[in-house]
Computed example of a mutant assay.
Amino acid sequence: MRNLTLRQLRTVQAICRLGKINLAAEDLGLTGPALTLQIQQLERDAEVQLFDRTRGGMVPTAFGLAFLEAAREIEESLNSLEDSISAMKGLRTGRLRLGVVSTGKYFAPQLIAAFRKQVPAIEINLFIGNRAEIITKLRDHEIDIALMGRPPRDFEVRSQVFGDHPLVFIAPADHPLAGVLDISRERIAQEQFILRERGSGTRISLEIFLSDTPRKLEDLGTEMGSNETIKQAVIAGLGLAFISAHTIEQEIKLGRLVILDVVDTPIRRQWFSVSRLDRTTTPAMQAFEQFLLTSGARHLPVVSKPYPANVFG
């Protein structure tokens, strides 16, 4: 194994990613036979089978997945080395792969723009997805830092808070509860809700909030796949929603939605920046995490109730 090369590891990565020899060969600029020989030689050297050859394509074995993990760690180490050399030369350069849960897309561009003003030479690649997608990419070393409401618990991470994340009940402007003060949990539980998918942070928070309401959790309402769809459904009168206050700034300003004055809300959660505990923190990551710690909160949207108090107050 001491003669293992980066080229061989990148071959394993390409086959795992694309699933077929011909696609991986094209991606690497090789012929199919040449790539096949590389894999066969690697399997002989390691004395293990890296892939199962199936009709559907190349499926990595447990040994293949171990090689893939090693390849990802080496790529990260090389990227970290490049960033460290730049830092030692006094160059504030580097690359940051940032993952943001879908609720965060309403403020992520402002965060990135503010950060780039301070450190213009750091390149940022942004990926936005649901919570499960972001966690998977963080676990698989495909992103460096994730911005999310709750750090994952199934693998070790380092995390830091960079701002408050209020969750509120919203309704169309002409709803009977608009303008009513101190709405009880029992009263709000009588409504039907438009919901995110199971496992999302806002869905879990709503379920906890209504957990003492008999039988409500058995029929919360209708699931929809994005905050935008949920907002449009609420505006159309299809139900109420429990949603991040950061997602509704424009609709509140335009008078299309209102925040309901439900007792014990807003529920205050927090935004975290999260990275894997077992990976080296690059200078680019350090710079971004420090920016979030000192300046992140000021770039989060602030939404006020039209009555009688600020959503953060």
Rank of each mutant, 00 (worst) to 15 (best):
G90P: 07
L37R: 13
D164T: 10
L6Y: 09
A114L: 06
A113S: 13
R131W: 01
G64W: 02
T222A: 13
L138V: 09
L300C: 10
L293H: 15
G129K: 08
L18D: 08
F288K: 03
L238A: 12
A284R: 06
K253F: 06
T294W: 05
T31C: 10
G56A: 09
E43Q: 13
D154F: 14
A189D: 10
T5Q: 08
T213Y: 13
P166R: 02
Q41K: 15
Q41W: 04
D164C: 08
G29R: 09
Q8V: 03
S84M: 14
E197P: 06
H141M: 10
L65A: 03
S86I: 02
V119H: 08
P283I: 10
K20S: 15
R279Y: 07
T202K: 01
S102Q: 04
L220F: 14
E289N: 14
P172D: 12
A241N: 10
A173V: 15
S159I: 05
K117C: 08
L65D: 07
E82M: 00
F127A: 08
I259Q: 01
F67M: 10
R2I: 12
G29Q: 05
R203H: 12
I183S: 04
L9K: 05
V303C: 01
E197I: 02
K89P: 07
G179V: 09
D164W: 08
Q118S: 14
N22F: 14
V302Y: 12
L277S: 14
P166K: 01
L177W: 08
E133A: 15
S244R: 01
E249H: 10
G64N: 06
F169M: 06
W271C: 02
T11C: 15
L147E: 03
R196G: 00
S80H: 14
G90T: 08
L9R: 09
I248R: 01
S273A: 15
I252Q: 04
V100M: 00
A171L: 06
T54F: 04
F127E: 08
M224C: 04
L292V: 08
Q286A: 13
A171T: 05
V119G: 02
S80C: 11
I230P: 03
A178L: 04
R268E: 12
K305P: 00
L18M: 13
L37D: 13
T202D: 01
T265Q: 07
T11I: 12
I252G: 02
E207K: 01
E142H: 11
I243K: 02
L4F: 09
L91N: 13
S275G: 08
P120N: 05
V101W: 04
S275T: 12
G313V: 09
S184T: 15
L254V: 05
R196S: 00
G201M: 00
I170F: 02
H299Y: 15
I128H: 02
V258Y: 02
L220I: 14
I243T: 05
P308S: 10
R10Y: 10
I208P: 00
P283E: 11
E82C: 00
L167N: 00
D83P: 05
G129T: 06
D278V: 04
E75T: 08
L195H: 03
A113N: 12
F51N: 04
D278H: 08
